[in-house]
Design a protein around this nucleic acid. Structure first.
Lengths: 336, 336
DNA sequence: TTGTATGCGTTATCAG
DNA sequence: CTGATAACGCATACAA
């Protein structure tokens, strides 16, 4: 490894001069500056960011923790984060917990030990000990897409109540009176909000849901398929299902096909997120769209501004969703 | 930030003793060890990995560079990498180039400056200056999924020729005689291999392809849709298309639907990769499956073994693909 | 404009 | 078993 000492020796100046020249300090003669830069180039010098971070007290890196990298919803958030971090010269360390709360905790510890300047979490849950303990540290962080109600932190999320209302009212507006709900993990706030709103809207319209029409899955396709199979095998199956995210909805679609039910003729289906696959011609999933990429952008912009300004003005940002009506929803069948 | 000095002061020993105790050195009395660990716990000490890496000359982190994080193919590779890196206590810094060769180069430089111990690239192209210059450095690295023919490096890839052969012979076996090909970027080796094999297999079966039946896209859905639209609007459109990856195939599916062509009745379609969405009931894409997750695992295992052993025995691993026949392929229509 | 000295937090060497 | 001391590569306050 070639260091500033090597360059110093080569050029015949002191290491500090090299350091200054390379970081573009104004108090270096053009002559010296040029010679140093040329030597650096020639010797193939690359600055050791570790050493630099150690003395500057800042690594110019942020951590991003997501629950499921194969869900394009989170991949899109990551793209948003990457775009603005990149532009600011910050590195981002992306960690994927696969939904494990233990991994989340250990990643947070690892990232803090690696001295990231800040953290973005897309993995927050209710009573999340990780989020809580993070809030006791100096490390600035922000939650994206999922919040932790009981801890006061900055966040950028979608309006889940509004989104769920759009979904359910769309189904009711089509004439459905028996509507099922397949949610996400019970300890995810947005999951609960969508469920609570689902219940509330039904009630407001004088409808009620059979106990078997409401269940929690875990935001994966497999869980959606299984929940869908159960629910659609019921004697009194619902004529419509609101799935708490698109991946789950895709699983329900799978279950419906297996059971020989046509969508939307026999079953109307609404998802949530509007991931790219929802718009595939063969899928054409009616869904609630969230500005995913934008969430990543906004969260990162806030974090970087905190890092550069030093003062932490909290950000509580709730983005509006909108309904995208495609082909998986229609009026309930005549046999209803 | 609490450092070993703080602990040393608290316990009344020297910093070196604290360092030893915390890293589980055997030459520390049980008594001292216990007191140090308790103090560390109480004060909320977290080791500064930057400082540690600086002196140890190893950051215990590796870099992973992928071209498209929203393509689950690469997301799965990343999962494989993460799994084995995690288990070994290594951190992984994931970078997404969005297909830009410039970003690839700058990420490589950034990661090297951050002193990653090794690199995994899923972004290699033909005559890739990044790969070439990397091979001149000390940093161990391995290519995954995409190789760079003109540089001698370790790699873990799929057998693209075998895979393409499976795809094309499947179509020919079904009776297709006019088969189109929509490839990936021209500077990606696997792209070229699939295309070359496509041509070769056609020739071996006494078939030829109209010039308009062969084109390069860029492995995205949008490009697939556009290429599909063009190709399927031809007077003498092919009765089957081999798309060089699933995402492209999904785009072709979109184009077919827009043009009112039924798949597989009017058009047989084969993809490549077998990403999770290919098996959706509404999609049921016939495709060539690659052991994606395994690629990530194997590449990482090799890299970590190089890092721990010190000697670089190259790895040239070619994984066998297999054909998954689903519902997007059938015999050509009678109007053919 | 440049050089010297010091420190960032940790580990390692060498005495004791 | 423990404590000074040096070193990792870089940046900066202070001197010159």
């Amino acid at each position: 490894m070639v260091t500033i000492k090597d360059i110093a020796r080569d050029v015949g100046v002191s290491p500090s001069t090299v350091s200054r020249a390379l970081s573009g300090s104004p108090l270096i003669s053009d002559e010296t500056g040029k010679r140093v830069r040329m030597a650096a180039q020639r010797l193939g010098y690359e600055r050791n960011e570790l050493a630099r971070a150690l003395v500057k007290g800042s690594s110019e890196a942020i951590g991003l923790i997501i629950p499921d990298i194969t869900n394009t919803f989170f991949a899109d958030i990551a793209r948003g984060v990457g775009e603005v971090a990149d532009a600011a010269g910050y590195g981002v360390i992306l960690c994927n917990t696969n939904g494990s709360i233990d991994r989340e905790a250990s990643y947070i510890r690892l990232l803090r030990r690696k001295q990231v300047d800040g953290l973005i979490l897309a993995t927050a849950t209710l009573n999340d000990p990780s989020t809580r303990s993070l809030s006791q540290t100096e490390t600035p962080f922000i939650l994206v897409s999922r919040i932790c109600q009981d801890v006061d932190t900055s966040y950028v999320i979608g309006d889940d109540r509004a989104g769920a209302r759009l979904a359910v009212e769309h189904l009711i507006g089509l004439g459905h009176r028996s509507i099922g709900f397949i949610g996400g993990p019970a300890n995810v706030q947005s999951s609960r909000d969508r469920r609570a709103t689902y219940r509330k809207v039904l009630r407001q319209h004088g409808l009620s849901a059979d106990a078997a029409w409401v269940c929690y899955a875990d935001f994966t396709q497999t869980a959606g398929r299984e929940a869908g199979r159960r629910m659609l095998s019921l004697e009194n199956r619902p004529t419509a299902i609101f799935a708490a995210n698109d991946v789950t909805a895709l699983g329900v679609l799978e279950a419906a096909d297996e059971l020989g039910l046509s969508v939307p003729e026999d079953l109307s289906l609404v998802g949530y997120d509007d991931i790219s696959y929802a718009s595939l011609p063969r899928i054409q999933l009616t869904t609630v769209s969230q500005p995913t990429f934008e969430m990543g952008r906004l969260a990162t912009e806030w974090l970087l501004s905190v890092l550069s300004s030093g003062d932490t003005i909290p950000l509580y940002r709730v983005l509006e969703p909108h309904l995208v009506v495609r082909s998986t929803t229609t009026h309930p069948g005549t046999d209803d």
